[in-house]
Design a protein around this nucleic acid. Structure first.
Lengths: 199, 199
DNA sequence: CGGCACATTGATACCGATCAATCGGGGTGG
DNA sequence: CCACCCCGATTGATCGGTATCAATGTGCCG
């Protein structure tokens, strides 16, 4: 089992046509492949999106931890449940939200996740994702991502630059996205951020 | 925790606009809400799509089972992993597949899942889903679902009637969908069905 | 300085949504 | 028992959002 200590990664799948779909973003603190040993083989790939530092936990250690450290085990189970909730939110986005709404929703998600691990400052999130990567995550073309970003920038909602996003109007962003942070089940309520207030 | 014994259900979410997105289908044998007690509140709804019979397992019993019956616990964990893999496949479908491919892929998934629990016979799956429900699962409109179904029926791939689907050309269906059954991690390989062979 | 990857913008095509109307079947009330 | 009604299925016409194709700009790194 792996834990990301620094940097970003993603789960993805390449289709026969050559297009890529990203199914999840992994940020520092996220774990991959809990219980994966139960399954015969991996049905998708994991790829670093930046230079990354990763901790590896052996199966034996993992087994020992899950059996003898109840609180850690519970934490990992709930992290897993949150990951699932995030996937469900992605399905909702891809199925029923327009491109602007989808992008806004993803930014809300990443901003809040980034906030709980200290990647944000004054409405700015350190997010090293290219427009191409965003396109592959949202099921759109890079060209269209660019146009949507321009739209959001011009109406003063948010702006993306190489390496970071700045949320100019969190309330408007959350409203565009129809964002309800409930599904992230954040326990660290003492960190009260801008979007949090906006909701 | 609940287990579906008979009938179909789904996980879904309703958006502010009133549209519904279905995020998963639950068939006999599927369990919901493993570990759900860890989270404060549910972020989505579960709804029966047919009259259904459901078994309820109390938290105490569940705790006892997970601690003292290792093989059952492992089975539940891998079922959970398969559910996650299915969600990832849905994300790929919604992001990168056309409407025909999406529908074909869902039918492949449901056919194989139905096959392992004995819902199929001679290329026919007992599937009590209306076109409206399919539309809400695939992020399309009922009207368009209808047109896609017509297309698949006319070219001799599959045909849907009230209550069941008939796969006329499994190989073609799998090819349209770009279907790779690997992600379902089916262990019951002794049941070798038509699609299975086609892949 | 040259090359390469990403970002940006414009023109056009097409898939699927939307609006609208009709049909069909099963359940219900008179 | 029949008429009505309502929901789902079907089909047609049109609209709009996003993809596609193409070209240019821009910044970084070798």
């Amino acid at each position: 089992m792996f834990v990301i200590l620094d940097g970003w990664a993603c789960r993805y799948k390449i289709l026969p046509s050559g297009t890529r779909q990203i199914m999840a973003f992994l940020m520092p603190g996220d774990a991959c492949d809990l219980h994966i040993k139960l399954l015969a083989e991996m049905d998708h790939g994991i790829q670093a999106l930046t230079p990354a530092m990763v901790a590896r936990v052996s199966q034996d250690d993992m087994q020992e931890i899950m059996q003898n450290h109840r609180s850690i085990a519970l934490a990992m189970y709930s992290a897993q449940l949150v990951d699932e909730a995030i996937m469900r939110a992605w399905i909702v986005s891809m199925g029923r939200r327009s491109s602007v709404e989808r992008l806004a929703h993803l930014m809300c998600e990443l901003y809040l996740r980034g906030q709980t691990i200290g990647l944000t400052q004054d409405g700015e999130l350190a997010m090293p994702l290219s427009q191409i990567v965003l396109a592959d995550a949202l099921g759109m073309t890079p060209v269209h991502i660019n146009r949507v970003l321009k739209e959001l920038r011009l109406d003063g909602t948010m702006s993306l630059t190489r390496g970071s996003v700045t949320i100019m109007d969190p309330q408007k962003l959350a409203q565009i996205a129809g964002f309800d942070e409930n599904y992230l089940h954040r326990r660290t309520r003492h960190i009260t951020g801008m979007i949090h207030q906006a909701c």
